[in-house]
Design a protein around this nucleic acid. Structure first.
Length: 616
DNA sequence: CGATTTTGACCGGCGC
DNA sequence: GCGCCGGTCAAAATCG
């Protein structure tokens, strides 16, 4: 957590007055105070910064900017200052020589003409005024165009984020089905670590969407109503208990989470900058009654669960101090973590001033060849292709995690019975992502999804989570955060309608073998494919997982022919061996010439560009 | 000389 | 209240 006192220290330095090219927020609540940022050229024109739509609509003063096209306001910079006597250009021209300095020095042209009559002077002054007004008009047109562009961008962003919310809502519905089993193993701890914002968002959609609607009150009757949402064969009691916690979070999230999270990581322009900033319908603090459940009651602050940021942790074998993920990072600290002889390095993204994304890099104490990179926050800037690929890949892995990442037998069964047949996010979508590759650690101080790219498929399949870290499917909350956490929007194919309901398990369809031909599957594959194909650096880590998994029996193999990835067919690539062979603890670059014998039988081959980790 | 890294100090959260 | 620990800051050092 950042120190508040120091934050205010830094903000002026990080956020200069000119923010036309900034897409981040400077205020603690994650929003730019547009009223305090006025253009130097024209105080009436708001700076073209990504102001949340809600704020735009809340600021009629700024909408009045368009009134500058009227003659009455042309010479009056402050359109709202009605008390100040307006200067009437025509009147001034009639009574006095033009006293308005237009800054164009138009008078000098006529200063030498002494024989001009009063009417000529009048006409000249009118011409000057017209010229100045035209200049002003053009300028305002340009600024208006910029504002329109901004609005369009925000509208697009809002649409994307709405899709995210819908998807999150659906995933949460699925998680609710999955939750009882998880609770058996993890108790109620899991929910505690969930990122609240998606919960809020999803809850909002629950209210809207009758397909997943359930009461958000806390009365026993509501418990029943909520429990009725779950299948009868589930642990209703646990669901109800969890719902209590969920509702507390919902309450507090509405009031506080956005602020808390935005303070930490959200920025306008960030993919996750949804929520209150870009969606006035969802997070209007003043007029959000229709968005909330009518029977909600305020939860005391004491009941509020501290909000924690979700993190994405990627494990990969690398001798390099840091794997390249396409972003620029600046190291700002290093600490010796307890229980690990290897120092933990702290980096922050420097691709944009004020980008809140940070990452930690540390080697595992158990295996120092494994590099653990933990990402936190949302980028406030466009990502380069490599970073986008990284994000896509991670999100794809997260999707796979959501599809059924569990380590318990029960959960697997449950996943198979209730989720795998849904057709979405089934394990068969991405054969190279086994369920246990991505896990969420409940023992971590933050909800952390861990993408383990270091283990062989059999290891992963039979992996037993360490006692200190229980694993369970990443709930929606974390997933939603994850999607934005790495600074990328959710891919369109990952969206499914809010009223979607998992179809009943088709008889005779093997579990996990259902091969959906929907665009969701193909979209997922494309997403991951693009990620793999476009990032030769992160591919190195990912290729390890791909190669090892594809080289082993796939219990949920249903995707014949593996993955088609653009022009790079992983199955025919060579270079995964380099990563696979990284288990020999040799520098990755030395793995290029690894004999085929070091590969697992059937290991795919990746381009040689994938054989090395790029180091920073 | 600017950018980046290093490193000790500081702060807040948390458990005892 | 105290100490531990994780995380961050910022001055100094280093790098390119």
């Amino acid at each position: 957590m950042e120190k508040q006192g120091r934050r205010h220290h830094i903000i002026p330095k990080l956020f200069p007055h000119s923010v036309s090219d900034c897409s981040f927020n400077a205020s603690d609540d994650g929003l730019v105070d547009a009223t305090n940022n006025t253009s130097s050229s024209n105080p009436s024109i708001p700076i073209p910064i990504p102001i949340p739509i809600k704020q735009l609509f809340r600021q009629p003063k700024e909408i009045k900017v368009m009134d500058f096209f009227s003659d009455n306001n042309i010479m009056n910079d402050d359109a709202d200052d009605d008390e100040e006597p307006r200067r009437q250009p025509q009147q001034d021209c009639n009574n006095n020589p033009p006293a308005v300095n237009t800054g164009l020095n138009l008078l000098t042209l006529n200063s030498g003409i002494s024989s001009t009559s009063a009417s000529d002077i009048h006409q000249n002054s009118n011409n000057k005024l017209m010229t100045s007004l035209q200049v002003e008009l053009e300028r305002l047109h340009e600024e208006n165009g910029e504002l329109k562009t901004m609005l369009d961008q925000m509208t697009k962003s809002y649409s994307q984020l709405q899709a995210q919310l819908l998807m999150a809502m659906q995933k949460q519905a699925q998680n609710r089905l999955r939750e009882p089993i998880k609770c058996e193993a993890n108790g109620m701890l899991a929910r505690q670590f969930m990122d609240p914002r998606p919960s809020t968002a999803a809850a909002m959609d629950h209210v809207r969407d009758p397909s997943v609607a359930y009461s958000s009150g806390k009365t026993p009757a509501d418990h029943e109503a909520f429990s009725s949402f779950a299948p009868s064969n589930l642990n209703i009691e646990v669901m109800s208990m969890e719902r209590d916690q969920y509702q507390r979070r919902l309450q507090t999230n509405i009031n506080c989470a956005e602020e808390a999270l935005d303070r930490s990581s959200q920025c306008p322009g960030s993919p996750n900058y949804t929520s209150k900033s870009s969606d006035p319908n969802l997070f209007d603090d003043d007029n959000d009654e229709p968005k909330r459940s009518t029977d909600q009651e305020q939860v005391p602050v004491a009941d509020q669960i501290p909000f924690r940021k979700a993190r994405v942790s990627v494990r990969a074998r690398s001798e390099a101090p840091m794997i390249s993920d396409g972003c620029q990072w600046r190291k700002y600290g290093q600490k010796m973590a307890k229980g690990n002889p290897c120092p933990r390095a702290y980096y922050r993204c420097t691709m944009a001033i004020g980008c809140p994304v940070r990452k930690q890099v540390q080697r595992l104490a158990e295996d120092k060849t494994i590099l653990v990179t933990t990402y936190e926050g949302n980028h406030s800037h466009p990502l380069p292709p490599a970073a986008t690929a990284m994000a896509k890949t991670t999100s794809a892995a997260a999707a796979m995690l959501l599809s059924g990442s569990t380590t318990s037998k029960e959960a697997h069964q449950y996943h198979h019975h209730h989720l795998a047949n849904s057709g979405f996010f089934s394990n068969s979508q991405l054969p190279f992502f086994t369920s246990s590759m991505a896990t969420l650690s409940a023992s971590a101080p933050f909800p952390t999804i861990t993408l383990d790219l270091t283990q062989s498929p059999m290891q992963q399949f039979h992996r037993i989570p360490p006692p200190s870290s229980s694993t369970f499917p990443l709930p929606l909350h974390g997933y939603h955060q994850l999607m934005g956490g790495l600074g990328h929007p959710i891919q369109a194919p990952m969206y499914f309608p809010p009223n979607y309901k998992a179809p009943p398990p088709p008889a005779g369809v093997p579990l996990g073998g259902q091969r959906s031909t929907s665009t969701h599957d193909s979209g997922m594959i494309e997403t991951v494919g693009a990620a793999i194909a476009s990032d030769p650096n992160f591919t190195a880590a990912l290729a390890a997982a791909i190669s090892t998994i594809m080289g082993a029996p796939r219990p949920h193999q249903g995707h014949q022919g593996g993955i088609n990835i653009n022009d790079g067919d992983i199955a025919n690539n060579n270079a995964a061996r380099g990563v696979v062979a990284s288990t020999n603890h040799s520098p990755p670059s030395a793995n290029i010439g690894v004999p085929p014998g070091s590969l697992q039988p059937g290991s795919p081959q990746l381009p040689q560009s994938c054989t090395t980790f790029s180091t920073n």
